[in-house]
């Protein structure tokens, strides 16, 4: 990873811009990836309430996907998802890209292919890497 040059970053490691935690992409910390199964989801929003990284993406009050740029893979969402619903599966990162295998291993998984497949960039964003996550990141890091 090549970051910004030492002459270009703020002196004394001061962070001169507030509210910037969303720039700090923590998705690459993850070793297990939550897979959201849209057809099983009952939209109770427990995952959205409990996610410590605000990584459950919602639109019009409904879950639409997971922000993998910030999700650290803690698994709280999967734990909080009601047992009868079981709409979030934790899959090892190195196996999580094989969607056909995942789909075949989960009965009635239906539209597993429709989960948010946003991938984190590797490492920190070059121009923001000096910044520190001080608060929950908002789910604004969603990337197509």
């Amino acid at each position: 990873m090549i970051g910004r040059a030492w002459k270009e970053i703020p002196r004394g490691a001061v962070i001169p811009e507030p509210g910037n935690a969303h720039h700090y992409q923590t998705g690459d910390w993850r070793s297990f990836r939550p897979i959201w199964l849209k057809d099983r989801c009952i939209q109770c929003l427990r995952c959205w309430i409990m996610c410590p990284d605000s990584a459950i993406i919602t639109e019009d009050g409904k879950v639409v996907g997971i922000d993998y740029s910030h999700c650290k893979g803690c698994g709280i969402c999967a734990n909080e998802c009601p047992a009868k619903v079981d709409a979030i599966k934790m899959i090892k990162e190195d196996e999580a890209d094989d969607f056909d295998k995942i789909a075949s291993s989960i009965p009635d998984s239906g539209s597993v292919g429709e989960v948010n497949r946003t991938e984190p960039k590797t490492g920190l964003r070059a121009d923001e890497g000096h910044r520190r996550s001080g608060a929950n990141a908002g789910a604004v890091g969603r990337e197509a």
Binding site: G3, V14, G123
Partner: peptide, 12 residues
């Protein structure tokens, strides 16, 4: 508003 004293690891 500014932050003093952030974490700067291997990257910065």
């Amino acid at each position: 508003p500014v932050t003093f004293g952030p974490l700067a690891l291997q990257n910065y």
